[in-house]
Lab assay of single mutants.
Amino acid sequence: VTVDIKGMEYHFDNPEEAKKFAERMAKELGGELKVENGTLKVE
């Protein structure tokens, strides 16, 4: 699973970990979490 945090890509084997990480980063950065082509994106 790929997580894109404002252009920086992180790769996770575990989808649950990827989702938790993306949600935490969205909250910390005040960004919006989206799913695009199987990639979790925070913008």
Rank of each mutant, 00 (worst) to 15 (best):
V1E: 02
V1G: 04
V1C: 15
V1A: 08
V1P: 02
T2V: 13
T2A: 05
T2H: 08
T2N: 06
T2G: 02
V3L: 04
V3A: 01
V3I: 07
V3S: 00
V3M: 02
V3E: 00
D4C: 15
D4A: 14
D4T: 15
D4H: 15
D4E: 14
D4P: 02
D4K: 15
I5C: 13
I5W: 07
I5Q: 01
I5L: 06
I5T: 01
I5D: 00
I5E: 02
K6R: 12
K6T: 09
K6W: 15
K6M: 15
K6E: 15
K6V: 11
K6H: 15
G7E: 03
G7R: 00
G7S: 02
G7L: 01
M8S: 09
M8A: 08
M8C: 13
M8F: 12
M8P: 03
M8T: 13
M8R: 13
M8L: 12
M8W: 09
E9G: 04
E9R: 14
E9Q: 13
E9D: 06
E9N: 08
E9L: 15
E9F: 13
E9S: 11
Y10Q: 04
Y10C: 14
Y10F: 13
Y10P: 04
Y10I: 09
Y10T: 05
Y10W: 07
H11S: 05
H11W: 13
H11A: 05
H11C: 13
H11I: 10
H11G: 03
H11T: 09
F12K: 00
F12G: 01
F12C: 10
F12I: 01
F12L: 00
F12D: 02
F12A: 01
F12P: 02
F12T: 00
D13H: 07
D13R: 04
D13A: 10
D13V: 07
D13E: 11
N14Y: 05
N14Q: 04
N14I: 05
N14P: 00
N14T: 12
P15T: 09
P15I: 14
P15D: 09
P15F: 15
P15Q: 10
P15R: 07
P15G: 08
E16S: 10
E16L: 08
E16K: 07
E16H: 09
E16D: 12
E16P: 00
E16V: 11
E16M: 08
E17Q: 08
E17K: 05
E17A: 09
A18W: 01
A18H: 01
A18L: 03
A18K: 01
A18N: 01
A18D: 02
K19E: 10
K19W: 15
K19M: 15
K19L: 15
K20I: 12
K20C: 14
K20L: 10
K20M: 09
K20Q: 12
K20D: 13
K20E: 13
K20S: 11
K20W: 06
K20H: 10
F21A: 03
F21C: 11
F21L: 02
F21D: 01
A22I: 09
A22Q: 06
A22P: 02
A22S: 00
A22T: 02
A22K: 03
A22F: 08
A22H: 03
A22C: 10
E23T: 02
E23Q: 04
E23N: 00
E23H: 00
E23K: 02
E23V: 03
R24V: 09
R24T: 11
R24I: 10
R24C: 15
R24Y: 12
R24P: 01
R24F: 12
M25K: 04
M25N: 01
M25F: 04
M25Q: 04
M25D: 00
A26L: 09
A26N: 04
A26K: 04
A26T: 06
K27M: 11
K27V: 10
K27Y: 09
K27D: 07
K27E: 09
E28F: 11
E28N: 08
E28T: 09
E28V: 12
L29H: 07
L29I: 09
L29V: 06
L29W: 05
L29Y: 06
G30C: 14
G30L: 07
G30Y: 06
G31W: 12
G31D: 05
G31E: 07
G31L: 14
G31R: 03
G31H: 07
G31A: 11
G31Q: 06
E32G: 07
E32V: 14
E32L: 12
E32I: 14
E32D: 10
L33A: 05
L33W: 05
L33C: 13
L33K: 03
L33T: 06
L33F: 05
L33R: 03
L33M: 09
K34Y: 11
K34G: 06
K34V: 14
K34E: 06
K34D: 05
K34H: 11
K34M: 10
K34Q: 08
K34T: 11
V35R: 06
V35M: 11
V35W: 15
V35I: 13
V35H: 08
V35P: 05
V35Q: 09
V35E: 12
V35D: 09
E36D: 11
E36T: 09
E36C: 13
E36Q: 10
E36M: 09
E36K: 08
E36H: 10
N37C: 12
N37R: 03
N37V: 03
N37G: 11
N37M: 03
N37L: 08
N37A: 04
N37K: 08
G38K: 02
G38W: 00
T39Q: 12
T39G: 09
T39H: 12
T39C: 13
T39K: 15
T39A: 10
T39I: 15
T39R: 14
T39Y: 13
L40A: 06
L40I: 15
L40W: 04
L40V: 09
L40F: 05
L40H: 06
L40P: 06
K41A: 07
K41R: 13
K41E: 06
K41D: 05
K41I: 13
K41Q: 08
V42Y: 01
V42N: 04
V42F: 02
V42R: 00
V42W: 02
V42Q: 03
V42H: 03
E43T: 14
E43C: 15
E43A: 12
E43Y: 13
